[in-house]
Design a protein around this nucleic acid. Sequence first.
DNA 1: AATAAGTACAACCGCTTTTTT
DNA 2: CAAAAAAGCGGTTGTACTTAT
Length: 400
Amino acid sequence: MGRSPCCDKVGLKKGPWTPEEDQKLLAYIEQHGHGSWRALPSKAGLQRCGKSCRLRWTNYLRPDIKRGKFSLQEEQTIIQLHALLGNRWSAIATHLPKRTDNEIKNYWNTHLKKRLTKMGIDPVTHKPKTDALGTLVDGHAAKTAANLSHMAQWESARLEAEARLVRESKLRSSSTAAHHHLLISDHHHASSSSSTTTTTTSSSWPPPPLHHHQPTTTTTTTKSAPNSTTNNNANHDLESPTSTLSFSENMMMSTTNSSSTTIPTATIELFIDNSDPGGGHEDHNDRGEEDTKGAVGSLRLHDLIFQSEEAPMAAVLPGAGFMEGFTDLLLQDNSHEDDDEQHRPIHHSSSSPDQGDEAGRGGGGEEDPGDVDGHDDEGKSYWNNILNLVNSSPSDSPMF
DNA sequence: AATAAGTACAACCGCTTTTTT
DNA sequence: CAAAAAAGCGGTTGTACTTAT
């Protein structure tokens, strides 16, 4: 395998970019496009390696980058997606238009992670902190965490499937590749034109059969994901169904084709049951499974989630899901830092914004979060929330 | 006012994956 | 098909700035 030659040639500048360098790079790209990053520095009169130029462009100079403070909505999105996807910053970035993965990563590391930690939540696992013996302090929270982890596994499997589909689609119609990617057609451009419109699919269904996917192959999956983004435009032309499928449909796609998956059928049913607010029902009967809705009870994912005392806001918030409540709580913790208050429902109870280990419990005082039966709506709202998040995100997202 | 400590963020590093030759 | 180049990605570092002492 060819390794990129090291950029540390003598004479090449490193470190912060000067305004003059920025100007040179901008001017050159505006006029010629970046083309080959390797050749660009010399052509643009920069004493930088191509990689440095590329990073400067993608992370800072690109005209479609939004800089500055993250809104509450953005914070919420990051937290939610991080719970689902982990440190897959590029994947998260596709759901935050005009934000770069690098910026999100930095923001997470410097703000959100600390906030979680402060609240006694492990920012890596989104689990409550463990005691000295390594056991979770709260059993319900353990279930929550386990299910979040489970969801991540599903997502990984789905990603792998999508990446495969994109590759296969590309093979089938390479003609679309003729479309040159222009100056601003970087993969980060989730914000580009079509991003918010495609929430339903008219493309062919079902997708081609998939091979088995191990949900545990997260590394591969992570690395594969961007490719579907790289072929964003092609996806539309190719009518790759994966790019526009709803979350639950994608879940179905990956899970039903994954013989080795550990995903319980009944839980899959939960997705089907809850994820179709628009009524656009897909016929899943070809799975050859009985209608398990009646049997879902034992594995009601959202029930498990809502049993968690870490998700009290779900109980307080009419129409608000677990994650929303959860992240609201986190955001609330930081609300005093934010000047531009947004219009989220004032559902917060009198609980202090800074709740330390008791975080997540304060809001639950008004309604028992353990009241499983009362959380069906919240559970649906949770998934709707995720779906809304997903559907409002770029249709070309590699994630959903 | 000086300086140590803390914070934020741009940029770099090194690896993997994809594309091109 | 293999090698090289390019691009993508996430972790980490360096440094400027801010805050506390």
